[in-house]
Lab assay of single mutants.
Amino acid sequence: TDVTFHVNGRNLHLKGADEELLRRIEELIRRGADIEELEKAVKEWEK
């Protein structure tokens, strides 16, 4: 799945995201995470 999140005026584009990653990103956004936290979560998922 390709999806782009718009967070605090910045874009986080995910290519090939699975349901697990999407749920994790949505949860972080609900908690008020900043873009750096979201990018870190994506990097951890990519490993």
Rank of each mutant, 00 (worst) to 15 (best):
T1E: 08
T1I: 15
T1F: 15
V3K: 11
V3M: 08
V3I: 12
T4S: 07
T4C: 13
F5Q: 01
F5W: 03
F5K: 02
F5T: 02
F5S: 01
V7T: 03
V7P: 01
V7L: 05
V7Y: 09
N8W: 02
N8L: 03
N8E: 04
N8R: 04
G9F: 04
R10G: 15
R10S: 15
R10Q: 15
N11W: 15
N11G: 04
N11E: 15
N11Q: 15
L12Y: 11
H13S: 07
H13D: 04
L14P: 00
K15H: 11
K15Q: 07
K15I: 10
G16V: 06
A17T: 04
A17S: 04
A17I: 10
A17D: 04
A17W: 06
D18G: 13
D18E: 08
D18I: 02
E19T: 13
E19P: 14
E19F: 11
E19D: 13
E19N: 13
E20W: 11
E20K: 14
E20M: 13
L21A: 03
L21Q: 03
L21W: 03
L21K: 03
L22Y: 04
R23M: 08
R23F: 09
R23L: 11
R24K: 09
I25R: 00
I25C: 05
I25V: 09
I25D: 00
I25W: 01
I25A: 02
E27I: 08
E27V: 10
E27C: 13
L28C: 03
L28D: 02
L28G: 05
L28T: 01
I29E: 00
I29L: 07
I29G: 01
R30F: 11
R30W: 11
R30S: 12
R30A: 13
R30C: 08
R30P: 01
R31C: 13
R31N: 13
G32M: 04
G32R: 03
G32T: 02
A33C: 11
A33W: 12
A33N: 06
D34A: 07
D34K: 08
I35M: 13
E36H: 09
E36I: 07
E36K: 06
E37T: 12
E37K: 07
L38Q: 00
L38K: 00
E39P: 00
E39M: 10
K40P: 01
K40Y: 13
K40L: 14
K40G: 10
A41D: 04
V42N: 02
V42I: 10
V42W: 03
K43A: 12
K43Y: 13
E44G: 08
E44C: 06
E44I: 12
E44K: 08
W45E: 04
W45M: 05
W45D: 04
W45R: 04
E46K: 12
E46R: 10
E46N: 13
K47F: 13
K47T: 13
K47G: 14
